[in-house]
Design a protein around this nucleic acid. Sequence first.
DNA 1: GATAATCCGGTTTTT
DNA 2: CCGGATTATC
Length: 742
Amino acid sequence: MSDDFELDDEPRSVGATPWLNGLNPEQLQAVEATEGPVLVLSGAGTGKTRVLTTRLAHILLTAKAKPWNILAVTFTNKAAREMRERVSGLVGGAAEQIWLGTFHALGARLLRRHAQLAGLESNFTILDSDDQLRLLKQVMEAENIDAKRWTPQSVMGVIQRWKDRGLNPDQVGSGEAGELAGGRTVALYRAYQERLIALNACDFGDLLLHCLTFMQKPAHQDLLAELQSQFRYIMVDEYQDTNVAQYLWLRLLAQKHRNICCVGDDDQSVYSWRGAEVENILRFERDFQGARIIRLEANYRSTPTILAAASGLIANNAGRLGKTLRPGRADAEAGAKITVRGLWDGEDEARFVVEEIEALQRAGGALAEMAILVRAGFQTREFEERLVSTGVPYKVVGGLRFYERQEIRDALAYFRVVMQPADDLAFERIFNLPKRGLGEQTLQTTHMLARRTGVPLLQAARNLSLTDELGPKARSTMGKLVADFDRWRSLVPHMDHAELAGTILDESGYTEMWQKEKSPDAQGRLENLKELVAALEEFDSLADFLEHVSLVMENDDKQKLDRVVIMTLHGAKGLEFDNVFLPGWEEGVFPHARAIAENGAKGLEEERRLAYVGLTRARRRLFVSYAANRRVYNQWQTSLPSRFTAELPDHTVDRLAERGLFGGVSEQANAWSQDWQSVARVAKHRESPATVAPSGSFAVGVRVFHQKFGYGRVTAVEGNKLDVAFDKAGDKKVIDSFVTEA
DNA sequence: GATAATCCGGTTTTT
DNA sequence: CCGGATTATC
């Protein structure tokens, strides 16, 4: 609705600015400093989202600009959505017209408008990481690069870092290539880019890089000037996470009006491994001379104790811009001390955490206000097991996302070929899926013809189905496949797109493939496919939908259930909870050994920032824990408490280690060896690993191994007969003595 | 051209 | 230990 944006017809009188009510002086400053470059250094929990949204609303409500003159950039779709909602609440329908979104979504929007400047058509495909790798692999094969010695992943990593820095193949410095791929990485990069253009496709990095490239070309300065004029006000969230390409993109667009406001926190920069450069903050001051710097330091989230702990920890980092969190309210109660607990092993740690969760729950705490934040994904298992066995509801956030599932990607590949006949990667994916007797040989032939005649695979397949180059069987199968795609494509204008999607999946035999499959997860996959088709209803067309899924990979659980949340520290950035558990604070795990091995002191500092992020997620209570022993790849390994535990100021913590543990409170340190408890526990572990395979004692839920059927999980026990859901072989009845506990 | 054997590696992740 | 991805085999 554009009906209610008529603000500059009736200028507001001074004082009639209710949207500014309740801001503290620093926040108010940041909101009102609309003109000129502004850098807002905003500590955790200091209300930066509020500042950003209010600032946006303020510009609109004081009629400084029309919504389409504002560019507001976030990192995640979630943040973009939230911001739009909150701005809507303040200004109404006008919020719809703001250029607000993620870097990638905005880049895609810009690029679709000017695709021809990058050699693309405006309906280009956006590849996901899977497609990217497959494409690069093909390129590497074509260039005779040994994929054993240099994995496509590592080459892709280098290419992406180049893209993050805004470098086209021609701009990569000669000394940069290194030994990777026999020093031919730049050549691979160039070939990869050429293939992308030929496929009318982009990877994520290209969404920005292509814009950057055409905006920098002398030939397109008129367009750049137009864009610069349009964006009178620019706002950037999570500025510490921007990479160089994003920085350059912003700088170009901000050049004319120079009304750019970046909000960030150098202490929360945890994505350098993905190309983010905190240095962009420093660079900002240099490039935008006279930039105003506003610090938001009043924290309204956490107790003073938590703030003191977090500040104490982060003070160990050198080279910070300097920012001290202080309690937002002077009268705030200190709050409970942080529990720092040492446990014997991972199992004990999980037990400890879940016991505390139950205690908090008994005291009236909501489970949804408790979070277990881990360093790495694999750490969730122990907690899940414990939570399952105690019956505490939980959810793991992260992991495989909906649109990354195999069956969803397959289905999308079908849709892509229908909508985009030149999408070779999609075509290849479903070429012989379900199995239709077309193999490697046929694919090769098709590829060769495609390359020789310069047409997409689908077209080559069509040509092959008209000649005798293939055997009769392959030829007719191919002909049928091509005809199917033609038919589906002809239905696009005449049929409801969700219905068509269902038709495609049915007629292609894809649905049937899973119906016939009797592995335990086939049912779930069919349900996912149904969900996919249902999700389509919410879009206007298949094309719209494909754009959405390529840019919005997240799954949002709409249902807010009262559950403990388990996620990685990275995933928790931007969130907050009353009670936060930070397990696994052991040297090697956190800080992660590899972070230090690969990036030395810098790596360590980033790990420390991650710890800082973790600590500052908590409003009220924090529980840090570490285990002396852990099973890693089935081997027991002993570790020391993380140095970060020692960096928490003493007055903020209650340290409590099981007596006799390494790293217990110092006065106990010499008592560890003869401590009875540890002796008992050592004994426990001596006997536990599979010395006895107790027959007849398998419980439901136990993971087992069978010589013939492989791994599975017990679903029922009946005397010495077990029902087991095998991962590969499906449901079987077996005699218990034929399986061992996995 | 499809299935079984074997080898490898094993942080963080949004778009 | 375990999943995947490439090789070996029918």
